[in-house]
Structure formats: structure tokens, C-alpha cells
């Protein structure tokens, strides 16, 4: 009985995994096909030639947009970790008048979707002269209620005696934050980092608005242009672009999945 149950479970799992992973496999397979193969509707390419990839890089400054995406994602991640952890620290380790109110203020930003502020933000960024600059793509995302909460949840698990012991040893807030809280919370910082990297790398609407010249485009927008240019004929090249753009985040996800799963849960529900 057990063997049958287990066997059928595996069958179900494999079928579902194939179904779910199919778009990714499909994109991967098509990226190696010639235009003719694509038109014939083949599933498996005849050979794994890299011509489409070379074409994708030549059709656009794809490499440049990849570098842009990488830098923007890394800067945003670091910035968000710094800004959010500072705020989370204040909420957990400093008892001050108005803490409740400020905390409520932070909560309320969760209720305001980014889209609701996008028009004035576009004007602001324009006025600041940040159009086509990394600043526009990174700085507005340094402070997030989500990141602050996630870290706050983890900071709260640090025994308050640790803070008291360091106070008795003569540590101020900043040194306690740097020497104890940050190293102790390494795992939750990694969680936030992974999540932030993924969302920044994948963001679409905002980069579309605030980048106008090709050299400052991110990879997602690059993909949009690739698709616009090659629309009718060159599906193989477009799919090569998809694979190139998806690989960094898939890698980050596969490597950091455990972290992400645990950390997101803690931040979200507890």
C-alpha cells in the first residue's frame, strides 16, 4: 500500500513539476532554435547553437542593461538593508515617546500602493534631475515598511538582556547596533536582501518611466525593446533574451530559497 501511495505521489509531483516548469523549459529550448524551427513549431531544437544569444547581445545594448540591472539591484538591496535595519532598531531597542504613532505611520505606508504615488514621484524625480540616473531607480526604494517589519520581527527575538548586558559594558546604541544586532541578525538580513534583489531586478513600470535613453535601461526594459524589435520573426533571439534576463534571479532564488521561505513567513504572519 505504502509503495503504491508513494509511487502515485511521485507521478503527481513529476507531472505538476513539468507543467509548472514548462514555460521556463520552453523558453530555454526555443532560445536555441532557428527561425525555421520556430515556425515549424518544434519542441526540441536540433542543435544547441548559441547564435540566438549572440544576436540578442548584438541587437541591443543587452550587456549594458544587464550591468545596469545588477548595479541597481545591488545598490537598492544594500540601501534598503541599511535604512530598514536602522528603523527597525529604533522600534525594537529604543523606548521613546511617539513610538506607537511612528509605528502606525510606517504601517500606513503598506496601505499605499506604489502606483498611487507614481505621478508625483515621476515629477519629483524629474525635478531632481534623476531621470536616467541610478538614483531614480534605487533611492525611492531604500525605505520600505515591509523590510522594516521583517527586520523588526527578527530583532524582537534578540533577548533584551543582550542589550542590557552591552549597556552595562558601556556600549552605546550605534555600537550595539553594529557589533551585536547586525551580526546576530545575519540570516534575516540575507532574507531581506534576497527578496529585495528579486523584486528590484524584476521591477518593470518604474524603470520604464524614469529611463529614456538606451544606456540607462534595465534588463526588463531591454527585454521589452527586444520583443518590440524582433516581434514577428526572431522568436529564438527574444527567448535567448528571456533566458539571459531570468538566469540571475533564478540562481538567487535557488540558492536562497530556504532563507527566503523562513524569513518571509516570520515577517509576514507573526
Amino acid at each position: 500500500m505504502m509503495a503504491i501511495k508513494r509511487g502515485s505521489l511521485y507521478v503527481v509531483l513529476i507531472l505538476i513539476a513539468l507543467l509548472l516548469f514548462f514555460p521556463i523549459i520552453y523558453a530555454f529550448l526555443v532560445s536555441f532554435m532557428s527561425t525555421k524551427e520556430v515556425l515549424m513549431g518544434h519542441l526540441i531544437p536540433k542543435s544547441f547553437s548559441l547564435t540566438n544569444y549572440i544576436d540578442a547581445f548584438q541587437a541591443l545594448p543587452l550587456l549594458h542593461s544587464l550591468i545596469n540591472s545588477m548595479l541597481v539591484s545591488i545598490i537598492t538591496t544594500i540601501g534598503q538593508i541599511i535604512v530598514c535595519s536602522l528603523a527597525a532598531y529604533a522600534f525594537v531597542f529604543i523606548e521613546f515617546r511617539g513610538r506607537q504613532f511612528l509605528f502606525f505611520l510606517f504601517v500606513s505606508t503598506m496601505m499605499i500602493p506604489w502606483e498611487a504615488s507614481i505621478i508625483p514621484n515621476f515629477v519629483t524625480v524629474q525635478k531632481l534631475g534623476w531621470i536616467n540616473h541610478y538614483a531614480a531607480l534605487t533611492i525611492p526604494f531604500f525605505a520600505t515598511a515591509f523590510g522594516t517589519f521583517l527586520l523588526r520581527q527578527h530583532f524582537k527575538t534578540i533577548p533584551k538582556e543582550l542589550h542590557e548586558a552591552s549597556r552595562m559594558a558601556g556600549l552605546g546604541h550605534l555600537s550595539f547596533f553594529l557589533k551585536v544586532v547586525m551580526p546576530v541578525s545575519k540570516t534575516s538580513l540575507v532574507t531581506l536582501g534576497i527578496y529585495c534583489f528579486l523584486t528590484t531586478w524584476n521591477s518593470y513600470l518604474w524603470p520604464l518611466l524614469v529611463t529614456t535613453d538606451e544606456r540607462s535601461r534595465t534588463a526588463q526594459i531591454g527585454l521589452r525593446q527586444l520583443h518590440a524589435q524582433e516581434n514577428v520573426t526572431q522568436w529564438g533571439v527574444v527567448m535567448a533574451g528571456v533566458v539571459i534576463v531570468a538566469i540571475p534571479t533564478l540562481l538567487v532564488l535557488f540558492l536562497g530559497q530556504k532563507h527566503l521561505q523562513k524569513g518571509l513567513m516570520d515577517g509576514a504572519v507573526k
Binding site: F21, V242, A246, L253, Q257
Partner: peptide
């Protein structure tokens, strides 16, 4: 890992892929 994988795919990449999946002829 497979079940979580679509989290690692951007809106743009997914849309372009599905655009092809939905392509009426190919």
C-alpha cells in the same frame, strides 16, 4: 524548488514567454 521557481522569473520574462506560448500559429 521547482514549485517556487516562478518567483525568480520577472514579469517581463514571463510575459514574453507566455506571449509565445499564446502565439496563434507557432
Amino acid at each position: 524548488t521547482i514549485f517556487a521557481s516562478s518567483l525568480g522569473v520577472s514579469v517581463a520574462a514571463a510575459s514574453v514567454t507566455w506571449l509565445f506560448i499564446f502565439n496563434p500559429t507557432m
